[in-house]
Structure formats: structure tokens, C-alpha cells
Design a protein around this nucleic acid. Sequence first.
DNA 1: CATATGTCCTGAGAGC
DNA 2: TGCTCTCAGGACATAT
Length: 299
Amino acid sequence: MPELPEVETMRRGILGVVGTTIESIDQPKSHLQSIDFTPSFPALRKRLCGRTIADVGRCGKRVLLHLDDTSIVVIEPRMAGLVLVSNPPTSLHVRVIFSLDRPAPLETGPTELMFWDKRGLGKVRLLAPTEVEQVLGPEKIGPDALIISPETLRERLRKSQRPIKVALLDQKAVAGIGNLYASEILHRAGVDPRVSCNRLSVPQWQRIVYWTRAVLNEAIEYEGSTLSDGTYRNALNDPGGYQNHHRVYDRGDEQCRQCHEGIIQRFVQAQRSTYFCPNCQQRRGLHPRVPDPKLYDAT
DNA sequence: CATATGTCCTGAGAGC
DNA sequence: TGCTCTCAGGACATAT
């Protein structure tokens, strides 16, 4: 389930493709259902071959390949997709291979870029400049979770009746947070995942945004979370390390690693697992971990 | 308008 | 052993 830290790790892991030219694109034969290409694969191939990759970006949980004609390849890993430069975990699930030319001035680096997807829910689309706004614009995708300010997040959600955990998953409100990190963030912020957005205080919004940045940045340092199913890998097929630092996710019935008193509870919200510590995340009570106000400011 | 539900898809694991 | 069932959840379409 690649979320912001995993997708950012993919982005950093493929920076070596910047400056290369797409020589060919192939779709390995497989009995599996084809993933969704927009436009169709043959049209995509025709439009991409010969294009140079000018930059690699990220928009929420999507990887972007910025091309020299200002069109953009949008790769959406969704549940089980990976962007790799070598060593796919299985050859069966390689959905598309970009073969890259490295012009003379470029140092050595990747000569292939792959999209691998175990479950086939991912998508690859090519956006013409005129399509970018309607697909990636602010109407569709909210401010990035790493830079949103507490004021902006509060403005966007303060009237919502939804539980805060559910609202944090809304990519139109804030982009990049998924099910795993939503639980981790709220635990660190000392906020009960069940509380309605419209009942949260200003200090609680501040703590949520502070810990959103802190948790996501720490997870990026560890190159993301590889859960017990082992699916998530970085661009070289190495597992991430942040799963060893989770406080609550997938730790139901364990003693809380923070307060050493509560037992981590699991329950379902909006068809998704939520984990929390009833002791650290009470509806009312003191929240001793007050972050530095300087860090609230958006950049 | 805000919110809720169904859908896609595969592989792993449980139960019989 | 091999079948059927359930579950995992990101994003989008559709329904309330």
C-alpha cells in the first residue's frame, strides 16, 4: 500500500533516469489481466518513444515522469504497485518496461524503468499539458501532506462530520496519507481516531499537522514500510525499514510502545483497519507531547 | 453538497 | 489435496 513515504522513496530511487530518452516500451506477456493504460498501450508507446525524461516528481501517491515536451507520465501504484530500475520481485507481475537510452554525457545509471504490480490495480497514464490541470489540479488533489499548514488543514476539515481518521484519507483534503500512516499520525498526536473533525481543537489540528510531517519524514528516511506480506520495495527491490518503528499499525493486542500501559486496539472505520492506544488517544485528557510551534509554518 | 458504499484485482490463509 | 471463502485497501464511480 504505497503511501506518501513509499512513493517518495520510489521517486528518489529512480532519479537516475532523468536525462535519459525512452527508446522503447514493452508489455511482457502474461495471463494476468492488463493494467489500465490511458491512452491505450499502443497509443502510449507511439507517443512516448523518443521522448526524454526531464524530471521525476510526485503528486500525492503518484509518481510523475515529466517529459521534454511538457507532457507527464502519471504512475499510480495504488495497492500493490512498484516503480523499479532493476530486480523486479517476480517477472510475472512486470506490467510495463521502459527501455532507456543514456546519451554520452550522462554518467552510468539505469537503462530500464519498470512498473510492477502484483494485483493489477495500478494505472499508467500519459497527460498532455492541457489535461494536467483536470487530473492533478487542486480540485482533484489537495495540498501535499508534507507542506500543508495546520490552518489550511483545519479550514478544509473543520466543518466535516467525519471521524478524523477517515478524513485524513481523503486525498482532496490532503494528499499522501493512507491507512497505515493515518493511524500512526493520530497516535503520535494523541488524538482519538473516532473524533469528528468538527470537534477538534486548534491545538489538536496543530499536533496532527506537526506529527504528519514528523512521521512521514521519518518514514521517508527509512525508505517506507514493508509489511508482513513483503510487497512494498524501493526502486532496487530492497525492503523499507519503517515497519520496525510503527507504534500502532498492525500491532493489535500489543502493549503500547509509548505509554507502556494501553493495549493497542484494532477496529474498522470506513471498511479500513484503524489501530490506536486507548490510553494515549483519549477523547479528553492531557497531551504531553507539545511540538515546537516554529514547525507549524508551511514552507 | 457531504458522505457512504461498491468496484476493481490477486494472493495468502483459513476452514472443510 | 483441493476447493471455496474471506480479507487486504487506494482511488474512483455511483448512490443516498
